[in-house]
């Protein structure tokens, strides 16, 4: 299930984790300054997936001064995953406060308004660029 939990991201590394039933697909591209998460996240223990993501974000934010763009296509997060997302967003906010160029693009399935509401509840707590848009019919 979990292939690489607990690893510390090294400078310049990428992440490419396939989605599982309870964890989203994750792709992090160091050179592009791009992080994608897509799917649903409700693992019993969030470190299974979020430790890798958080350490990648930390490594990127401390190892470069380039922009970071996140694309989030998350249909559902359990409350532990919501907490873990906040750990990521707090780091982004700190970087934004220090002048970093950052953006979050939250994309939700138009049939799933709950995902839009989830995005809105994150967005209201931060002041970096956070765009929420519907995809699909």
């Amino acid at each position: 299930m979990t292939q690489s939990s607990g690893q510390t991201s090294t400078q310049g590394s990428n992440l490419d984790l396939p989605a599982t039933q309870a964890t989203p697909a994750v792709q992090a591209d160091w050179n592009a300054g791009f992080l994608l998460m897509a799917g649903e996240s409700y693992p019993e223990n969030t470190y299974e997936i979020f430790d890798d993501i958080i350490s990648w974000v930390e490594a990127y934010l401390t190892g470069t001064d380039r922009p970071l763009h996140m694309e989030l296509r998350l249909n559902y997060l359990n409350t532990s995953s919501i907490r873990a997302m906040i750990d990521i967003f707090d780091r982004l906010q700190n970087a934004a406060d220090a002048g970093r160029e950052l953006s979050v693009n939250w994309l939700y399935d138009s049939r799933n308004p709950r995902s839009a509401e989830l995005g809105e509840e994150f967005k209201e707590d931060y002041d970096f660029d956070f765009v929420i848009s519907a995809v699909g019919d």
Partner: peptide, 18 residues
């Protein structure tokens, strides 16, 4: 037609079970 009911029931079920 809409996923709202499914997502709400799923969410409640997951939180309770976990």
């Amino acid at each position: 037609d809409c996923m709202t009911a499914a997502m709400d029931v799923f969410s409640v079920y997951i939180e309770m079970s976990q």
